[in-house]
Amino acid sequence: MEYVNPLTGFRVDGRRPNEMRQLKGEVGVVSRADGSALFEMGNTRVIAAVYGPREVQNRSQQVNSKEALVRCEYRMAEFSTGDRRRKPKGDRRSTEISLVIRQTMEASILTHLMPHSQIDIFVQVLQADGGTRSACINAATLALADAGIPMRDIVTSCSAGYLCSSPLLDLNYIEDSAGGPDVTVGILAKMDKVTLLQMDAKLPMDTFETVMELAIEGCKAIATYIREILLENTKQLEYRRG
């Protein structure tokens, strides 16, 4: 199948290889949570809710009492994928992604400022169309910011792949299932440091560098967008305060 049309240079959905899908972000969707956000990348839609910092519920989980305990759970709704999933939680993929998100966010949260407490990040996928991992991290960043939890920097994430001899930014589900390589990158935006790097399938080294750089560019663009959202949110809050 031609993922990149050789005659026109467009992808299946009409994007160019270096274009992202439409982004949409919103803060404060779950009123009862300390911080929450909705993030959409194309047809992938994710809600993140942050509860914390609060008292540690389970002492045994706490490793270092001088730092906050960060916990994360990733769940997909049964209706989120084309085929209805029978086991939306507890399967290996969800556990792995929960771990990945936790580690990524932990790198950015200033945990030493909140000892003896725990921060819960819950991510619920409403619609999955490729790039769920990245959408979850972006949503979590927004939710953490909404909750007012101190962070070093904004964490953003984006994926990129390599099909039909060209690097493609932000793969959707069809392109992801094409069997080509899929590189997911998460960076700390201003500090320009990579906190998440995952890849499946094979890729020669120099091509990998091109693809990874494309993904990092995507992350930076998302970071700009997230900053805009947060800025506008703050303006709204200020306006309501009067």
């Binding site: 009862r32 809600i47 809710a49 609060r54 759970e73 819960d120 819950f122």
Partner: peptide
Amino acid sequence: IYVDCSPTAAPIFEG
């Protein structure tokens, strides 16, 4: 019919 409570609603819904 199947209902799922997302942990985003309340932390106790985790796991």
